[in-house]
Simulated assay, not measured.
Amino acid sequence: MNTMTTRFRPDRQLTLRMLATLFLLGLLYVAFIAALIVLLKSWIVVVVIAGGLLAAQFWFSDRIALFAMHGRAVTPEEEPHLHGVVDRLCAMADMPKPQVALSAMDLPNAFATGRSPGHTVVCVTTGLLRRLDTEELEGVLAHELSHVAHRDVAVITIASFLGVLAGLLVRFTFYSELFGRRGDQNTAALLALVMAVSATVYAISFLLIRTLSRYRELAADRSAALLTARPSALASALTKVSGAIARIPTRDLRTAQPFNAFFFTPALGEGTTLFSLFSTHPSLERRLDQLARISQELGGPT
């Protein structure tokens, strides 16, 4: 789980956490598949469905995310300013340039997604471009490029698969017509057991992924601040984006929330309270505190 060779500083703690998360999720995945095979008595069906879903998520995660967020790839001629910032950061970091996309949403945010550094998309919304100045935009994009450089975009994509599979099975068994047949108690009991196992697996994978996600966001903030040498610009972008998101209509936030683990900052409205255990991101205060410390290490506000 090495990072690609770039000028982003290697983060051994992030690498170790990603390896540990993947190892634990791998064990959970094997146990989950084994339990389904025992319960459903058909290893072919279980393996084909699980393998197909994993392949689809791995190969098409970037397209799915862009489609859901109304994003599309843009050329340098269409968005010269956006491409200029990405070009400059990639030159500073000595890394390949990812595909650049724009989402026609007022929700101010950005995300990176893709299965590998060579197949990655960095997408920003029109709401983000409208609200940030060049230095702030540079800080946000450096944050996203750090995710690409450290390969944690691919790790989160793979890691989230188990939760997706378990969640789908929970919904299937809950809404299944067979589940409602009172006369077939054996079938109902079997589906209830599948639902219980799936719900347990979903809960465990949910917690593991969020623990990793919170650390990777702090790691990306740190890497972006050190690469640009302007932690105060990233702090300003965080403050602006978080304040603006609080004023976005709840309906639009609900559309974006399934992708919170990939976003620069979570799509949560004003008054939303989440236990830190369940959050995909560290608190705004914690992120700003870290950037303030980095600013002091670099010799004051820059």
Rank of each mutant, 00 (worst) to 15 (best):
A149Y: 09
E135N: 06
H150Q: 11
I156H: 01
V100C: 07
S146N: 11
A149S: 15
R131V: 10
R131F: 03
L132T: 02
S146V: 05
L141H: 04
C123G: 01
G118Y: 08
T120W: 02
L145N: 07
A101P: 08
M105Q: 14
D133H: 03
L141R: 01
H119D: 15
E135C: 00
R115A: 09
Q99N: 06
I156M: 14
S116G: 13
S116R: 14
L102Y: 10
L132M: 06
E135D: 15
H150N: 11
V121W: 10
C123D: 04
N109W: 06
L107S: 06
G139D: 08
G114H: 11
T134A: 13
L129K: 13
G127L: 05
A101Q: 08
E144Y: 02
T125D: 11
L132F: 00
G127C: 07
V100Q: 07
Q99A: 14
H150L: 04
T126F: 03
H143C: 02
T113R: 01
V122E: 08
S146Y: 11
R115I: 05
Q99F: 02
L132V: 00
L102H: 09
L141N: 05
A104W: 12
P117D: 14
G127Y: 06
H143G: 02
M105P: 02
A154T: 10
T134H: 09
L128E: 11
C123Y: 01
S103E: 09
T134G: 00
G114P: 10
L107V: 15
L107H: 13
L141T: 02
V148Y: 08
L129N: 07
E136Y: 05
V121K: 09
I156Y: 00
L145F: 08
A154P: 01
A142H: 05
L107F: 15
L128G: 11
E138A: 04
H143I: 01
A112N: 13
R131G: 03
H119Y: 07
T113Q: 01
F111Q: 10
L107D: 07
A101F: 08
V100K: 02
G139R: 04
L128H: 12
V140F: 06
S146F: 10
A154G: 11
V153S: 15
L137I: 02
P117W: 13
V148W: 07
D152N: 06
